[in-house]
């Protein structure tokens, strides 16, 4: 039975168990021995070893860094000619490889995520709907909202489809290029063996690999899932752990990107880190570890678990761009020779 706050009866306090007595004995000893050592905490929750990454695991190095053009940076995406598109504040801003600013679209509300076609067509996710812009930033269409609770946080495109990760409704929406909703993917369905997405905080992402399968993070289950375009669940990988090979905290990974050969780049919050996994889900290496994102690690806490977080995008050369949602820094990471 659930209760909002669990407080036991008085009688229970006085019916002490042998286990508790043993611990109390240990405490009495601690009191005697260490009364003066008040600064040491015998019950410390020690994760200091997780705050530092084994250098042998880090296979990328930073080659450049610049700031997102506006506060409240949310997502990054790569477009044609490796142009980087940043969703920050009420803007979508394009930047070339060296960080020079190009196209900028001002919006009436915060931009949340985007996907860009080879011809420069931009599909932009706003909170509850998608807008389409041409390469020059002219608005071409505003698609109907998929629903009141929609919270679009990730997008991807293929030749014929646009996919949107709707964190509010815990579903991947598949559209055709005209904005017609073709299919809802990943909703819990026992008969089709679909487990359903668990999205405790608004971080939900989708990418399409060259094999045509969708890669979707399922943060509440600490794993990555694979779906066909028709919504068949093809499998998953990932494990829950604070350790470097797993996904930490209540909900991770929060965002993903794909390397040109299909390997995964994953982003985590809480212990902010960016890692590479092989196509079969085996941990491979670290792009940037917790020590690279000090402010970010402090931002994510119980008062606001939506704070903090990282995003990543990959260009045609395999360079990884990491967006720090707290500092607004964009780091360009190159694989070490």
């Amino acid at each position: 039975m659930k209760r909002e706050f669990q407080l036991a009866s008085r009688r229970k306090f006085f019916s002490q168990t042998a286990g508790a007595m043993a611990i109390l004995g240990a405490i009495a000893l601690q009191r005697g021995q260490a009364a003066e050592k008040a600064a040491t905490n015998p019950f410390a929750y020690d994760v200091s070893h997780l705050q530092k990454t084994d250098p042998k695991l880090i296979t990328y190095e930073e080659t450049a860094r610049w700031k997102a053009p506006h506060a409240e940076a949310k997502r990054i995406a790569i477009g044609p000619e490796d142009t980087l598109y940043l969703c920050s504040g009420n803007y979508l801003t394009a930047r070339n490889r060296s960080g020079d600013r190009g196209l900028e679209i001002a919006l009436a509300e915060p931009s949340r995520c985007c996907a860009v076609e080879k011809d420069g067509t931009i599909y932009l996710g706003l909170r509850d709907h998608i807008e389409v812009f041409d390469a020059k930033g002219q608005r071409k269409a505003t698609w109907d909202s998929p629903g009141k609770k929609s919270w679009i946080t990730g997008m991807a495109t293929t030749e014929n489809e646009v996919y949107a990760a709707d964190a509010g409704n815990r579903v991947i929406l598949r559209y055709d290029k005209s904005g017609k909703l073709v299919r809802r993917i990943g909703e819990k369905d026992k008969e089709r063996n679909i487990p359903g997405f668990i999205i405790p905080s608004p971080f939900f992402d989708v990418e399409v690999s060259r094999d045509g399968l969708l890669r979707v993070n399922n943060p509440g289950r600490h794993r990555m899932e694979l779906y066909t375009a028709d919504g068949d669940f093809e499998g998953s990988w990932g494990s829950a752990s604070m350790g470097i090979k797993g996904f930490c905290g209540c909900c991770n990974p929060i965002n993903l990107a794909l390397l040109p050969d299909g390997r995964f780049v994953t982003c985590e919050k809480g212990l902010p880190r960016v890692k590479v996994y092989r196509t079969d889900g085996q941990f491979e290496s670290v792009v940037a570890g917790v020590e690279s994102f000090v402010a970010n690690g402090k931002a994510c806490g119980p008062s606001d678990c939506t704070a903090g977080g990282l995003d990543a995008a990959v260009d045609a050369q395999g360079r990884i761009y990491i967006l720090d949602l707290v500092t607004g820094d964009v780091r360009v990471m190159k694989h070490r020779a």
């Binding site: 036991a8 229970k12 168990t17 611990i23 015998p42 019950f43 929750y45 905290g249 809480g270």
Partner: peptide, 30 residues
């Protein structure tokens, strides 16, 4: 699936706050 409930057995709890730290650092702070 995939939810679990966590209850405190107050006969055993000594108020050390180790769990509080774990929950506050990486959970919801409940």
């Amino acid at each position: 699936d995939p939810y679990y409930e966590y209850k405190i057995d107050e006969q055993l709890c000594i108020g050390c706050a180790k769990c509080v730290e774990g929950c506050s650092r990486f959970g919801n702070g409940s």
